[in-house]
Structure formats: structure tokens, C-alpha cells
């Protein structure tokens, strides 16, 4: 009895279309984020996260419209990340029906942006997305730093210290992605996840590397994450959200069934 650990499918959206293909066998339009969000909603997803990778300014308007359409039909929380740089960007997404926004690079460029956003809209809707990479050498105590630009650009900022700072600035949640694990299917960086989760009093979503249901469970039990985010294992129909929840429940993890 208590708060459930959340399972969050993540969609990459470019100009209003889902990319990195979702392969539901019986879906009419696998590129339509609304169709896919509805499907995940019916499958028991606890939230849905959209990563907007649209580059152009015009494309951003499409994203706003997409969020509007999803929010009209999907009655679970919706987070939109990617390209959130100004208070105006946040207002647009929240007005369109997003419940939370993910702030990544803009926080690194200007940490006070998170504070301004949290003061204006409330901590409950400000998710700080952290992309971290291990920088310690073999045999050294583990250390991770923040990277921007999809993991290409080092910042020299320590990941644990950064998480604490973002929390102090008013973040309501942290979306933590291991750049070492992202796309590998080798599982979360559990030491990183645990280091961050233990360092901050706010919820942490583990991301990057999920290839099996055991990885999801490990994120919670070993990584102490409050929520686990995954893309490909759900998109390609390897597992359903329901199977993931049953697996976790069998291992004593509280989930919403």
C-alpha cells in the first residue's frame, strides 16, 4: 500500500511525427504521436514523456498543436522536453495541456532559468533533464559529469552537485539519462541513478539503457529511482507496459496495475 513506482514510455517527436519508429503491429499510423499516446494510455502507462527534437521554429508550433491533441484525449500526465528555453516556451506547452516540461541545456546555460520557471509555474511542473557521463577512470571513485548537445559537449559540471543545485533552484523532479548507456540496452547506470536519487529529496526518473524487464526493476530496487523511462523495449513490441508492471509487482515493487 503506497505510492506506485511509475513506468513512463518516451516518444521522440520531430515536426509532429514520432521518429525512431514505433512498431505496434495493429496501429494505423505509427508516426502519429496521438495514436501512440492513446495506445500507451490504454496499456497502463503511468505518464507519457515527449522528447521534441524538432529543430525549426515552425516545427515548434506543430509540437504545441500535437500536445493539444494528446491532452484532449489522454488523461494521464504528459511531460514535454526538448527545446524549452524560455518562460514563454513553458507557458505555451502548459497552455497546450502539458503537465510538466523538461529543461535540459537551457538550465546548464542559465541555472537561474530553472528558478524563474519554478517561481512562475510551480515546482510541480519543472523537470530538470540531466544527461550524465562517467568521467572517472577505472579504479577511481565513480564520478559523472553533465554533457549537453546529446552527450557530445562536456561542461565540467559534476552530476551529483548539479542535481542538488537544480533541486535547490526549484526543480520538482529529475529526469536522469546515462549517456554511456543510452541506446545500449545494457541497463541503467545503477550507480549513477542511486548516487543522484540519494542526493536529492525530489523524485528521480531513471533513463537510458533499458533492454529488459529486469533492467526496469533494477532501476527501482538498485538505482532507487521513483520512476523508470524506456523507449525502444515498448516501441518495438518486445514488452508491453502491462508485462513490465506484472514483472515488477512479482518482485515486490509497488505499481499501478
Amino acid at each position: 500500500m503506497g505510492l506506485a513506482k511509475r513506468i513512463i514510455p518516451c516518444l521522440d517527436v520531430d515536426n509532429g511525427r514520432v521518429v525512431k519508429g514505433v512498431q505496434f503491429v495493429d496501429i494505423r499510423d505509427a508516426g502519429d504521436p496521438v495514436e501512440i499516446a492513446k495506445r500507451y494510455n490504454e496499456a497502463g502507462a503511468d505518464e507519457i514523456t515527449f522528447l521534441d527534437i524538432t529543430a525549426s521554429h515552425e516545427g515548434r508550433d506543430t509540437t504545441v498543436h500535437t500536445v493539444e491533441r494528446i491532452a484532449s484525449e489522454v488523461f494521464i500526465p504528459l511531460t514535454v522536453g526538448g527545446g524549452i528555453r524560455t518562460v514563454e516556451d513553458i507557458r505555451n506547452m502548459l497552455n497546450a495541456g502539458a503537465d510538466k516540461v523538461g529543461i535540459n541545456s537551457a538550465a546548464v546555460h542559465n541555472p537561474d532559468f530553472v528558478k524563474a520557471a519554478s517561481d512562475r509555474f510551480g515546482a510541480q511542473c519543472i523537470v530538470v533533464a540531466i544527461d550524465a557521463k562517467q568521467v572517472s577512470a577505472e579504479g577511481e571513485p565513480k564520478r559523472w559529469e553533465i554533457f549537453t548537445h546529446g552527450g557530445r559537449k562536456p561542461t565540467g559540471i559534476d552530476a551529483v552537485e548539479w542535481a542538488k543545485k537544480m533541486c535547490a533552484n526549484g526543480a520538482g523532479e529529475i529526469l536522469l539519462t546515462s549517456m554511456d548507456r543510452d541506446g545500449t540496452k545494457n541497463g541503467f547506470d545503477l550507480e549513477l541513478t542511486r548516487a543522484i536519487s540519494d542526493a536529492v529529496p525530489i523524485p528521480v526518473i531513471a533513463s537510458g539503457g533499458v533492454g529488459s524487464l529486469q533492467h526496469l526493476a533494477d532501476g527501482v530496487t538498485e538505482g532507487r529511482a521513483d520512476a523508470v523511462l524506456a523507449a525502444s523495449i515498448f516501441h518495438f513490441g518486445e514488452y508491453t507496459v502491462g508485462e513490465a508492471k506484472e514483472f515488477m509487482a512479482e518482485r515486490g515493487i509497488e505499481v499501478r496495475l
Binding site: 503506497g2 505510492l3 515546482a123 523532479e173 521513483d226
Partner: peptide, 10 residues
Amino acid sequence: LKVPHMGWNQ
């Protein structure tokens, strides 16, 4: 316990 209390509870 993390605060905010965020997620699905009974």
C-alpha cells in the same frame, strides 16, 4: 520519501 508526493497512490 521524496517530496513532492508525485505519482499514483491509493
